[in-house]
Design a protein around this nucleic acid. Sequence first.
DNA 1: CGGCATCCGGTGCGATACTG
DNA 2: CAGTATCGCACCGGATGCCG
Lengths: 142, 142
Amino acid sequence: MPKPFRTYDCGPGCPVEATLDLIDGKWKGVVLYHLLDGCLRFNALRRKLPGVTQRVLTRQLRELEESGLIVRTVYAEVPPRVEYRLSARGESLRPVILALKAWGDAYLAERAAVSEASAAAARAPSGPSTDTGPLVSEPAPR
Amino acid sequence: MPKPFRTYDCGPGCPVEATLDLIDGKWKGVVLYHLLDGCLRFNALRRKLPGVTQRVLTRQLRELEESGLIVRTVYAEVPPRVEYRLSARGESLRPVILALKAWGDAYLAERAAVSEASAAAARAPSGPSTDTGPLVSEPAPR
DNA sequence: CGGCATCCGGTGCGATACTG
DNA sequence: CAGTATCGCACCGGATGCCG
């Protein structure tokens, strides 16, 4: 056993935690998402992740590899070439990743709509109801 | 805007990251999962999370509240009572959470099967093929 | 090209103690 | 019961530089 999912373990059943643990890390989620389209080389992957450094990306990839979610293939060529692709297990994550993406899309769209609505309200005070539904919950008057 | 999803932002579209960011935190995932069954009081929730401290649980709940995923209701009673329930937005996460759980279940079952298989192999070397499929990818001969 | 070594700062997380 | 206050630490993520 390489490592328990976390320090605790919640007994033998914390499936959500087990899953989240595997995709825990600032970039793992996006990495898996991009790999859904097929295998990618290191720098190709890196280009899709603005802001990530090699050290970090390498680490995330290693962890994903150790989790058995991706496969790392090294081609012994003069210009080194390393490709990353989803393993069978990683491929089985596809619906999960897509669920995350779908929800995120809706979430971001909703947010954008709210922002625009409030902007419109600012342009036309006492205008049409900006409350198109139960969107924003609180202005957090902390 | 309370805070950008992360320091970068990936342009206007990193739905997976946006989603993962909201359930990022050691306990948020499980909290949401347990709230799927209905609202829970603070200590009830706490009892379901072996190992969590008040300070941390409080923080996670606050962040979930600020994200608009859960609703915090305080009843001004002599023994203070605070209940947490999913908001509409949090409720919309249900399929996502369930997807995480479903995958985690399969993952854990697979792991358990592999462990047992290797244990059986240890008991009976050269026995029946323990390789019931493409399960373990590597013994990590690092 | 794709890594690893080293150093460093922010903060997430935890233990403990106290309050309304 | 539910929460703040204080303290401490490990660890993740990032910057820089060198190697096969």
